[in-house]
Design a protein around this nucleic acid. Structure first.
Lengths: 204, 204
DNA sequence: CCAGAACCGGAGTGCCACCCCAGTTAGGTG
DNA sequence: CACCTAACTGGGGTGGCACTCCGGTTCTGG
């Protein structure tokens, strides 16, 4: 979605210079976030993009907006992956594979997990389709299929599953071997701690 | 452990006024952290404790030190719980129960999860027994027992397990129904997504 | 009671997010 | 082409933060 359209469409296209600045900020922001994570300094992004800080704040009124813009294409890629996997003959593995892909994206793109997490319910109704809802919708389908194939418990929600994945990624994001750890923890979470499919409950 | 002793003990006890300030800062910090989480403003804590910011920084050279001091007794309680549970006839459930207790503490004491997480490897060798290592040691025993009883996979480490719990708590900490969510996610992670203990692997 | 060590806190530094407003520029119109 | 206006810009201001320096104050042992 180009940045010049609002949810109510009849808006004039951006002026050429404005769009130039917008694009430059976005490119620089991607670098900075990859380097310093979701808490990268906005001031420095503006500086590196040769732009006043006011300009950055005008184009992206909140940090969350900037993150969403930076990660939009990654999120779209994940949604596309989900669509592909919807045709997989093994719905259970398709779901697991997709969650693994989400995790891999999240650890290799610092800040993505934080962005998806924060976007959950930050109450910005002006933003129609946030990355968070896009991902949720994409995953809901895979989970439903896995459920029907009896490969997932019916009482688990896609929101919970994604929260789990994002939590893991957020936690290991700053560690050197983050990818390996994320993979290990995700596998653990999906298969449980019991050795060979025991079904012991938990008492509190 | 009283704050006037270092790992090498021959240190004079704190002066009375210094200890007074130390205690007041700690009390105020506990409130502030409960209210605003681990990122509470140190400046405001100093202000509320009627103390110059320099005094706060002298007593607690880093945010992590302050967090550790605030949560020390909670962590000791968890370690005691672990010791009790070591006698439980069902090692698998004992482990699960303890992890649940850790989670409950972490969601009801904002900042605890962050503190335990950050303490993992922040390279502060001057601090002998951090909360992180205390918890890890306490849990290692429970996990070893569960392992011996074939109630936990042998390839799972206590570090991973705690990382998982803390990640979950960190993620749901700011949500209104955090406790319920944490419990649900923890159960999910411990038992896996498969309906009745299936053992399907994951392909990436 | 008094010397000196321990301790205190205000003022200073440098970073940050975010806002205001006077000046500049793009781009449609005559 | 020149011009006019709305859109856009960015320097500088505000307020908050973590953290440090240093002259002054307060404990405490002898």
């Amino acid at each position: 979605m180009p940045p010049d359209s609002r949810t109510t469409s009849p808006t004039r296209p951006m002026r050429a210079d404005a769009r130039r600045n917008y694009d430059r900020i976005l490119a620089v922001a991607a670098e900075a976030i990859a380097e310093h994570g979701a808490e990268a300094s906005l001031e420095e992004i503006a500086r590196r993009a040769d732009v006043g800080s006011a300009t950055l704040h005008r184009h992206f009124p909140s940090r969350q907006r900037l993150l969403e813009a930076v990660f939009r294409d990654k999120v779209e890629a994940l949604c596309a992956t989900a669509a592909d996997l919807a045709a997989d003959p093994d719905p259970g593995q398709a779901l697991a594979t997709w969650l693994g892909a989400v995790a891999r994206h999240a650890v290799s793109n610092r800040g993505l997990a934080a962005s998806l997490m924060r976007g959950a319910h930050d109450g910005d109704p002006t933003l129609g389709a946030t990355c968070h809802t896009m991902i949720t919708n994409a995953g809901a389908d895979l989970l439903a299929r896995a459920c029907r194939a009896n490969a997932a418990r019916p009482d688990v929600s896609i929101a919970d599953l994604l929260k789990l994945v994002n939590a893991i990624c957020l936690a290991v994001e700053r560690e050197p071997d983050g990818a390996a750890q994320a993979d290990r923890l995700l596998t653990l979470a999906l298969t449980g701690v019991h050795p060979a499919g025991g079904t012991a409950g938990r008492k509190m």
